[in-house]
Write a protein that binds this DNA or RNA. Sequence first.
DNA 1: CGAGTTTGACCTGCGC
DNA 2: GCGCAGGTCAAACTCG
Length: 307
Amino acid sequence: MKKEATKMEDLMESSSFSEHIQSSTYPLSGVFDTSGEEGEKSSLGFMELLGIQDFSPSMFDYMPQQLPSVVPPAVKEYSSETLNLPATPNSSSISSASSEAVNEEQAKAVDEEEEQQKTKKQLKPKKTNQKKQREPRFAFMTKSEVDHLEDGYRWRKYGQKAVKNSPYPRSYYRCTTASCGVKKRVERSCGDPTIVVTTYEGQHTHPSPVMPRGTPACFMPDSGRLSAGGAAANFAMSMPTMTFSYNQQLHQQPHVNNFSPLSFGYVSSSASSASVNDRRFCTPRSALLRDHGLLQDIVPSLMPKEE
DNA sequence: CGAGTTTGACCTGCGC
DNA sequence: GCGCAGGTCAAACTCG
C-alpha cells in the first residue's frame, strides 16, 4: 500500500508533469492500462480504458494527498475569462509623430518602428499586460502504447516540444471545432514510458462529433463544470466522451474502488450546495441504462451496479 | 484540394 | 537583464 503510494510518488516526481499535477487546480489522475491484448487499438481507446481490470486502485488511494483540498483557485481560474483588452502600443509613436519637432529622420525611425511592430503583429498578436489566465486543466495518466488516445473529439496537432529531462516529446492538440478552444497536451512519463499523461484544458462547447448514439447528459461538454463553493470534496472531470468522477466520500471507505467504472460518470454530490448544478449534468442511472452511448460497449460487469 | 502533421521560429513567464 | 523552458504560430509538407 505504502509501497504503491511511494511508487506513484516517484512516478509523479519523475515526470515533468508532476508540476502540473500538483499545481494545476483540478488534477485528477489515474493510471489505466490499455496495454492488454487490444490495448493498442486507438479507436474507442477510452472504452478499453474502462474495460481493463489491471489498474491499481491504490494509486488512486494515493491521489487525494496530491490533490489540493480547496477549490477557490480553480473556480477563480475557471470563471474569470481574461478580457484581452487590446493594448495600444502605437499610440505613443503616433503622438510623437504628430509633434512638430519631429524631423524626417525621426519620422522614418517611427515608421520603421511601426513597420516592425506591424510585422511582429503579423507574426503574433500583441498580448495584453494582464497575466494570461488559463483554463483549468484536467490531467490523467493512461497506461497505453499509443500516445494520442481516441476520445471522440477531433484534434489538430499544433505543436510538439521536447520536454526537459525527458526523451519523449510533448504534443499539443487543439479541438478542430472552430468555436471550441479546448486544448490537449499529450506526453509520456519519463519515469514510465508506458504511461501517457494527457492534460485537457478548457471545455468543449459542442457535442462530440463522433458520438453517433445518444450522448448521455453526463458526457456532454459541460459535464465537467467545476462546482463553486462546497464541492471541494467532489471532482468531476469532463473528458470528451465521458466524465470521470472522484468522490472523496467513497475514498474514505476502505475497499471501495474509487476510480473504477463504478464511479464512472457518476458524481455523488450529496450535501454539496453545488450538487444541483452537478446533477444538471449528470445522467440518471435510468438514462444510462437507456442509452449509454459508447458506454454500451462496456461489458455489463463493468457497468454501474444498481444500489 | 482540404485537412492534418511537422518543425523551426517566435513569444512569454519565470528563476537566477 | 539574461537565459531557459514551455507554449504557440504558421509555412511547408504529407496524405487521402
